[in-house]
Write a protein that binds this DNA or RNA. Structure first.
Length: 210
DNA sequence: CAAATTTGACCTAA
DNA sequence: TTAGGTCAAATTTG
């Protein structure tokens, strides 16, 4: 069934992938710190958008209940718009050619109901790794962390611990991590890292395996 | 004593 | 409202 919505779907995927590629190139050639950060945010959004598209990909048998072809682009566009709002300077770098249509905001419509919510804080993605802890204690990863919370997680047998870099105050190091014992194997811990250390502290030895 | 942890309260997105 | 993330006062640790 190569119906219309499927064609649209493929087109959308291409557009996003294409835009993502552009951002990557842009990132590779610029060096300003702030721009770098913004580009990083945008890249993340693109990736999220593609993930969403994958989740609801029309490949499955039940195509009939596939998105009404309008609420899907809405989700994607909302995600992307958030990023573009954080990157006004990009208006000047308007890429040659096509995909302006995705950036609907350039010639502001007067009563955009979207403009009110421009204060979204976008958090960095977490990278997860599994760590063996035969002694029941999580091996040191070389950084000094300070624990700031612990939570019971619904459906998990063990609580989740919250840490952030111990140098948050002396330096602006925003790195943080979460640790949670695995449900199935008590000797395995799931360690999630967010952000990278700006403090150049001791041996940054990222733990093994994943 | 300072510094790190514990733990219930607080905050907020879904 | 709930679940998950964070704050911060009390407590423990070194």
């Amino acid at each position: 069934m190569a119906n219309e919505s499927f064609q649209e779907y493929k087109k959308l995927v291409n557009e996003i992938a294409n835009g993502m590629e552009q951002v990557k190139q842009l990132r590779a050639s610029s060096s300003s710190g702030n721009q770098e950060r913004v580009l990083e945010t945008m890249l993340t959004s693109y990736e999220e958008a593609l993930l969403i598209l994958n989740e609801i990909s029309p490949e499955g048998q039940d195509q009939s209940m596939m998105i009404s072809s309008s609420d899907l682009p809405d989700r994607v566009l909302e995600t992307m718009l958030t990023s573009y709002e954080e990157a006004p300077f990009l208006n000047e770098i308007a890429p040659e050619g096509q995909d302006q249509s995705m950036i609907s905001s350039s010639s502001d419509p007067p009563d955009s109901s979207v403009t009110h919510s421009l204060k979204k804080r976008r958090l960095l993605p977490m990278t997860t790794m599994l760590v063996r802890a035969d002694s029941g204690v999580v091996p040191d990863d070389g950084y000094s962390w300070r624990k700031y919370g612990q939570k019971e997680i619904l459906g998990s047998r063990y609580p989740r611990d919250y840490f952030r870099c111990a140098h948050l105050y002396h330096q602006k190091c925003l790195a943080s991590k979460q640790v949670q014992r695995s449900d199935d194997d008590p000797n395995i811990f799931e360690v999630k890292y967010r952000g990278t250390h700006t403090c150049m502290r001791p041996a940054p030895v990222p733990p093994p395996l994943e």
